[in-house]
Simulated assay, not measured.
Amino acid sequence: MHSILLITGWGLGTKPLEALKQSLQAQGYQVELMNIFNAFDQVELDAKIKIAQKFDVIAGWSLGGQLASVLAEQIYKKTAKAKVLITLASNPCFIAKECWPIGMQYSAFQSFKSSFQQDALTTLKRFSYLVTQGSKNAKQDWQYLQNSVNDEDKTIKIQGLELLENLNSVSILESYQGPQYHVLAEDDGLVAYKVADYLRKIPAKFIKIDSVIGSHGFPLFNIHETTNKILGYLKTTLKK
């Protein structure tokens, strides 16, 4: 039985990914969910690497995709074993920079960060709204996500914002020696679909870029399609 470590995105915990986890398990995969973590803390990073080494596939949604990339790179450096890397609705450099201009503007992000520090709950509700924009069922999806909004674990959420601001995993994707699969949503309100064009320019050996119709939250709501995308890729990538 092949195993998948699935890392969630910022702000909502692992609950929204439970449906995707169950869908993949129904197809015979062992799946474990992981919350975001502070990849800039070496002790914490080492602990997550130890966990991730046990899995065949390291996948992540949004910020989780960047963290999955970090874990995959670190495992390869330590063990020379290349895990399958999958990212869903993930921009390897969330804030627009000269070297990677497709991302959120720094001023807009700082405004969001300040808003979260002043009123976490209201900001998380606003964030949930952005996650669902582009979906055919945006209102229904947004109402569902409200059940995951809380101001608990504020420390890790603030650390997550620091990661979104500073983490740049483009160089990881460029040099990664293992298979990598990146799925972007065409109507994403948080990670522009144009990121796919930039990813296609990455000179990696085993990289595949794919798309779905939907919002940033497609792994949370388009369960059947997301599962099929992942399974289709893994069937041609993982050895039995």
Rank of each mutant, 00 (worst) to 15 (best):
I172Y: 13
S169P: 11
S169K: 03
K154I: 05
D153E: 15
Q159S: 03
L173C: 10
D151K: 03
K154Y: 12
E174S: 14
N168D: 15
T155I: 11
Q159A: 02
T155E: 15
N168S: 13
E152R: 14
S169L: 00
Y176P: 15
Y176C: 13
I156F: 01
K154E: 14
T155M: 12
N166L: 11
G160V: 01
K157L: 04
K157A: 02
E174C: 14
S175F: 08
I156P: 04
E165M: 12
S171T: 14
L173A: 09
K157V: 03
L164C: 03
D151S: 08
N150E: 05
N168C: 10
L164K: 01
N150T: 01
L167Y: 00
S169M: 02
N166Q: 15
E152C: 00
L163T: 08
Q177A: 06
L163Y: 00
V149K: 05
D151M: 01
I172P: 13
E165D: 14
I172G: 11
K157D: 08
Q159E: 13
Y176F: 15
G160Y: 01
I172E: 08
V170W: 05
L164M: 06
K157I: 00
L167R: 05
S169N: 09
D153I: 02
S175K: 15
I158L: 11
D153L: 09
L173Q: 13
I158Q: 13
L163I: 02
Y176S: 10
S171L: 12
Q177P: 14
D151A: 03
N168G: 07
E162K: 14
E174N: 14
L167N: 04
L167I: 00
T155N: 14
I158D: 12
L161W: 01
K154N: 06
Q177N: 13
V170F: 04
L164Y: 00
E152A: 04
N166Y: 07
L167S: 06
I156W: 03
I156H: 03
G178H: 08
K157P: 03
I158M: 10
L164D: 04
N168W: 02
V170L: 07
S171A: 15
S171R: 15
L163R: 04
Q177Y: 11
L163G: 06
L161Y: 04
L161R: 05
S175C: 12
Y176V: 07
N168Y: 03
L163F: 00
Y176A: 09
S175Y: 13
L163K: 03
L161D: 05
D151T: 01
Y176T: 07
L167E: 04
L167V: 01
T155D: 15
K154V: 03
E174M: 13
N168R: 14
I172H: 10
D151F: 05
G160K: 02
Q159G: 01
